[in-house]
């Protein structure tokens, strides 16, 4: 077990080293993802600044909580962009054209390789920008934030980052079973696009079922912010952990079944 972990870490280091070599060859668009996603979250900040210039609160959240929400979603997205997004994003393409063969024949987990083979250091400034937004939100929020709340916030961010990763894998692993992934990508884009603008506290009824349970983008930044501002309850925490457990199991089953279902270039 320990030897396997050591081997995986060596593989990850080697993948990152190779990636850096490649990036140095194509430096032109190095910071592209930072500027694109940075502008996206800057737009969100401007939007809610305009909204809060006209209203005091949205539900129970004031301007500070909303800035924290935007910063937290931005951070989840930024960490994914740095580590795994570009690698995981290539999965459908590699399944369709048969390149997956190369991943299956190597003595390392294909998912581990996909996760770390296209790390993107150009998005690191996006993490820094997100941290600045979070700090600004914490300063603006009308709450006294204690150390325990900060620890809970970091814990929930880590949990939700795993969930974010699993959602990325699930959506792309479905390509093992369908001819095209266009609709799934649209579904993912639509879910993220909606939930990066709208915190989970806005959902109710059927919308809550969809965005808390089926496409859980609605809880990803909401639970960390609720833990930071003292709105987290025990049932909500249990629900968050249950969602993570269910989606972890789903990811494992879907990936393993998908690999068995893979028929090389004819997929």
């Amino acid at each position: 077990m320990l030897a396997q972990h050591k081997k995986n870490i060596r593989v990850i280091k080697e993948l990152i080293r190779l990636r850096f070599q490649k990036i140095m060859l194509f430096r032109l668009s190095f910071f592209g993802p930072f500027f694109v996603d940075g502008s996206l979250f800057a737009v969100q900040l401007l939007v809610f600044r305009a909204v809060y210039a006209n209203v005091d609160r949205i539900g129970s959240w004031g301007r500070g909580e909303m800035i924290l929400y935007i910063g937290s979603f931005s951070l989840l997205n930024a960490v994914s962009m740095v580590i795994c997004f570009f690698g995981l994003n290539s999965i459908p393409y590699k399944i369709k054209n048969g390149d997956m063969d190369l991943y299956l024949t190597k003595p390392v987990s294909p998912l581990l390789r996909f996760t770390f083979e296209q790390v993107n250091p150009g998005s690191i400034p996006l993490i820094l920008m997100s941290l600045c937004i979070i700090a600004y939100g914490a300063a603006t929020a009308e709450h006294s934030i204690k150390t325990a709340q900060i620890a809970a916030y970091i814990f929930w961010l880590a949990v939700m980052e795993i969930l974010y990763f699993e959602m990325e894998v699930i959506i792309r692993a479905l390509t093992f079973f369908f001819v095209t992934d266009a609709r799934l990508s649209q579904l993912e884009e639509a879910g993220i696009d909606l939930c990066m603008k709208l915190p989970g506290i806005a959902f109710y009824g059927i919308y809550k079922v969809i965005f808390y349970g089926l496409l859980p983008y609605g809880i990803m930044a909401t639970l960390p912010v609720q833990s930071l501002v003292g709105e987290m309850s025990l049932p909500l925490a249990c629900f968050g952990l249950l969602v993570l457990a269910v989606f972890t199991a789903l990811t494992a089953v879907l990936w393993k079944t998908g690999i068995r279902h893979y028929n090389s270039a004819s997929s």
């Binding site: 909204v51 639509a190 696009d193 603008k197």
Partner: peptide, 14 residues
């Protein structure tokens, strides 16, 4: 629908 849903939920709450 996501655009309309965004407006419906956000402004419904406001």
């Amino acid at each position: 629908v996501t655009k309309i849903l965004f407006a419906y939920l956000l402004w419904g709450m406001v």
